[in-house]
C-alpha cells in the first residue's frame, strides 16, 4: 500500500536509493514513516510543508476506499 508514497518521494529527491517507507498498522489508522537522505528532507517537505501536504493529500485519496485513515510522517 505504500508503493505510491515511495514512487512520489523517489521522484522528488536527488538520492532515490535512500528512500524508505515503514508501514505501521494501527487498526483504523495506517502510519507511513517516510525517510529520505538528510540532504533531501527539504525536497519532500517543501516550503512551508507544501510538498509534504501534497503528498499527504494524494495518499489520503489512495486510502479513501479502504476506510482507513492514513498518516504520513517524515522522519
Amino acid at each position: 500500500m505504500s508503493d505510491l508514497l515511495v514512487t512520489m518521494a523517489k521522484a522528488l529527491v536527488t538520492n532515490p536509493d535512500a528512500v524508505t517507507v515503514k508501514e505501521i498498522d494501527r487498526g483504523s489508522t495506517v502510519v507511513l514513516e517516510l525517510s529520505v537522505a538528510p540532504e533531501d528532507m527539504g525536497k519532500v517537505i517543501g516550503k512551508g510543508g507544501k510538498r509534504a501536504q501534497a503528498i499527504r493529500t494524494i495518499m489520503k485519496a489512495k486510502y479513501l476506499r479502504t476506510g482507513k485513515r492514513v498518516v504520513v510522517d517524515i522522519v
Binding site: K50, A54, A61, R65
Partner: peptide, 24 residues
C-alpha cells in the same frame, strides 16, 4: 473522483508534484 478530491484538492496536489517532476 478519488483523483479529483474535494474542491479539486487531490487534482491540485497531483498537478503540483507533477510540475516539480517536470521541472526537475
Amino acid at each position: 473522483g478519488a483523483a479529483i478530491g474535494r474542491h479539486g484538492e487531490t487534482l491540485d496536489a497531483i498537478s503540483y508534484l507533477t510540475s516539480l517532476v517536470a521541472n526537475k
